[in-house]
Design a protein around this nucleic acid. Structure first.
Lengths: 203, 203
DNA sequence: ACCTGAACACCGTTCAAGT
DNA sequence: ACCTGAACACCGTTCAAGT
C-alpha cells in the first residue's frame, strides 16, 4: 500500500476511535509506521492532512451536488444544498440524539487542544462546502465576484441555528419555519455584493 | 500598576494592533514586562487570560436599553439589542455551561408535554422581545408596517446559531465573525418589506 | 521520487526557589 | 501573597542525508 494511503488510514482509524483524537505529526506517523518526514512529504502541512481526511469522510458521507443542476434557478439550488446539510440530522428523535453526540463530543468536554482542532477540522470542511457553492454561483454570474467568507459564515450560523431548533421541542411545523428562514438567508446572500478586501464590518 | 492589569493591557494592545495576534504566554508576558510564571499566577491558564480579556471588551461595548436610544441609527440599535441577548451567555466556559443546562433541560429528556410547554414559554418570551424591537422600528418608519413574524423567526435562528457557536470550540476571534453575521442579519431585516398575509416564500 | 530522523523554534504548564 | 525563570513535555516544520 502506498505511504499516503497508509497515513490517511491511520489517521482515519484514530479519528474513528476518538472523534477528538489529537492527530499530531508524530502520533499519526507512528501509527502509520512511517517517519514524520515522510508524512510531511505527502502532506506539506498538518492542515493539509486534516483537510484531505475530512474531505474523504464527507465525500463518503453525502454524495450528489445540487449546485450544478442548471435546470433550477440559483436560489432553488442553493436552497437545496442547504437542505442537504440539514437532512441527515433528521427531525425530533433523530435530531435530538444527533445533537446529543454533538454536545457530548464538542461542548461538554473541556475544550482541550484535541477537541478544539477536531472541531475546527469539521468547521473548515463545512466552510469549504459552502464556499464551493457560492463560487459556482459566482461563475454563473448569479453572485457578484469577490470574497465570500462573510456570506459563508452567515450561512453556517443560520444552519447551526436551524439544526439546534430541530433538536429543541417544537411548536408548529418546523419545516415551514425552516423553509422561510432558509429563504431569507438565501435571499440575503443572493442580493448582497461581496465585501471589499478589507474593513471592520458593514457591507 | 498591578501586574494583572499590566498583563491585560499588554494583551489588549496586542489584540488592538492585530486582531489575530498570537497572545502566547511568552509574548504577552514580555510585552507586559513580567515573567511567564507571574502571568500564570494571575491567569492559571491561557484560556483564562483570553476570557478575562473578552469579558472586558464586551463589558466596555454594552451600555443599557438600546432600542429607544434615538441618538443611534436604527441599524445600530437593533444590533445592540441582539448583542444584549448574547452577552449574558458569556464566552467559552460560561457559554459551555449555559449550553449544558440548555441541553440537559430541553434536548436530552423526552419532549414530554411539560418539557415542551416549558421550552415554548421561553421561546415565546424571546419572540416577544424581538417583536417589540421590530415594532418600535416600525413606528419610527425604519421598518415598513406589516407582519414581522418571519423576520422574528429569522433573527432568533441567527441568535441560536451564534449562541451555539459561542459554546463550541473556537478558532479565531469570535468577536469579528459574530459582528459580521449580526450585521448581515440586521441588514437583511431592515431591507425587506414584511411578507403579505400568505404565501410560501420570497418577499 | 520517496523516505529518514535529527534539529529548530516554538507552545502551555509546572514548580522549586526567591522576596 | 506575589514573582522568577528554568525545566518539561509537547507542537509543526525544515532539511541534509540516504535509497
Amino acid at each position: 500500500m502506498e505511504t499516503r494511503e497508509k497515513i490517511l488510514r491511520a489517521a482515519a482509524e484514530m479519528l474513528a476511535e476518538d472523534m477528538a483524537a489529537k492527530l499530531s505529526v508524530r502520533a499519526v506517523a507512528a501509527r502509520a509506521g512511517v517517519s514524520t518526514g515522510s508524512l510531511r512529504f505527502h502532506f506539506p502541512t498538518q492542515r493539509a492532512l486534516q483537510d484531505s481526511l475530512l474531505a474523504r469522510i464527507y465525500a463518503h458521507l453525502l454524495p450528489g451536488d445540487p449546485i450544478r443542476d442548471r435546470t433550477l434557478p440559483p436560489r432553488e439550488r442553493l436552497l437545496n444544498c442547504l437542505r442537504q446539510v440539514l437532512a441527515p440530522l433528521g427531525t425530533n428523535e433523530d435530531a435530538r440524539t444527533a445533537w446529543g453526540t454533538m454536545y457530548r463530543t464538542f461542548i461538554e468536554p473541556e475544550p482541550t487542544e484535541a477537541v478544539r482542532t477536531a472541531y475546527l477540522g469539521h468547521e473548515r470542511e463545512a466552510e469549504r462546502r459552502v464556499e464551493h457553492w457560492l463560487t459556482v454561483l459566482e461563475e454563473e454570474g448569479a453572485l457578484p465576484p469577490g470574497d465570500h467568507t462573510r456570506n459563508v459564515r452567515f450561512l453556517l450560523t443560520v444552519l447551526n441555528g436551524l439544526s439546534v431548533e430541530r433538536a429543541l421541542p417544537t411548536g408548529g411545523s418546523v419545516l415551514v419555519a425552516e423553509t422561510e428562514t432558509l429563504n431569507a438567508a438565501v435571499d440575503h446572500v443572493l442580493s448582497t455584493r461581496p465585501a471589499p478586501p478589507a474593513g471592520p464590518a458593514r457591507p
